[in-house]
Design a protein around this nucleic acid. Structure first.
Length: 302
DNA sequence: CATATGTCCTGAGAGC
DNA sequence: TGCTCTCAGGACATAT
């Protein structure tokens, strides 16, 4: 479930491809239904082979790979996609492969200096078990019109005032609204639960009924949870799907306070247990005892 | 306009 | 053991 921390980890993990030149690009053949790719792979290859990776960045839950010539490859991992350098979990679900090399100017130096990165090929891979991920190559202008303008502020840029401005008049439940990328970009099901637990806010609360104090706590929790999750390289759940760029696991799942802890004792209030409910066809985990619609549980300080 | 629901996809795990 | 069924939740299309 790559959400902001997992996608940020992917971006950091593949940043070493910045400056490399594309030698080849292929869509892997397999019995599975091919992932959505735009334009078709052969066209992408024709455009990108020979160009250099300018930089790697993140847009909400998407990985952006910028190339010379104002082109950007937009990768949406969705549920089970991973952008990685090497060692995919298996070959079956390997979807895309870039072959990359250092630019010509450095090739001569590399063989004489063993401290430089190896001479020869590096790869950039897109692996996706369920195949819900999408990949598209577009111009910077298309990115701006089709994506940037349709997304809310990045979750790590949120402030209490931005929360009030973007959410404050909505009648939707706060947990459901946090998943809406038009309101805030980067939060998914796991971190929405963890953020609201840290903030002490009932996930069923209507946005237009939250107090400014509660928005402040949600904003603080957004930064606290996401930054901590980034430090742990994201969450690898029991299905093991999410991996970092070199097939390692994240460790933030060990820090989850409510997600996937239905029936277990609340880690904060002791008297309560974690409940699971369904909101907008997604599981929500929370502690009814210390996540209140109004006011705060005594164990939460102001 | 705001909000709610259906759809895509594969494999793990439950139940019989 | 092996079959069928449900579920996981990203983003978007379509419906209310």
């Amino acid at each position: 479930m790559p959400e902001l921390p997992e996608v940020e980890t992917m971006c950091r993990g593949i940043r070493s491809i910045e400056g490399l030149q594309v030698m080849g690009f292929t869509m892997c053949e397999c019995r599975l239904k091919p992932i959505s790719i735009q334009p078709e792979a052969s066209v992408i290859a024709a455009i990108l082979v020979g160009s250099k990776v300018h930089k790697v960045s993140r847009l909400g839950k998407r990985v952006l790979v910028w190339f010379s010539g104002n082109r950007v490859l937009v990768i949406e991992p969705r549920m089970t996609g991973i952008v990685m350098l090497e060692d995919p979990p298996n070959q079956t679900h390997l979807r895309l492969e870039f072959r990359l090399v250092r630019g010509d100017a450095q090739v001569g130096l590399t063989s004489k200096n063993p401290t430089l990165p190896m001479l020869g090929e590096q790869k950039l891979l897109f692996w996706d078990r369920r195949g819900l991920g999408t990949v598209s190559l577009m111009s910077a202008e298309e990115l701006e019109q089709q994506l940037v303008q349709r997304l809310g502020p990045d979750a790590l840029q949120m402030t209490p005032a931005l929360y009030v401005e973007n959410f404050g008049t909505s009648r939707r439940e706060i947990k459901v609204a946090l998943l809406d990328q038009k309101l805030v970009a980067g939060i998914g099901n796991i971190y929405a639960a963890e953020i609201l637990f840290m903030a002490g806010v009932d996930p069923r609360s209507r946005c237009d009924r939250l107090t400014s104090k509660q928005w402040y706590r949600i904003s603080e929790a957004t930064h606290g949870i996401l930054n901590q999750a980034i430090l742990h390289e994201g969450s690898t759940l029991s299905d093991g799907t999410y991996r970092n760029a070199i097939n390692g696991e994240g460790s933030y799942q060990q820090c989850h306070r409510v997600y996937d802890r239905e029936g277990l004792a609340c880690l904060r209030c002791e008297s309560g247990t974690v409940h699971r409910i369904v909101q907008a066809q997604r599981s929500t985990f929370f502690c009814p005892t210390c996540q209140k619609k109004r006011g705060l549980h005594p164990s939460l300080s102001d």
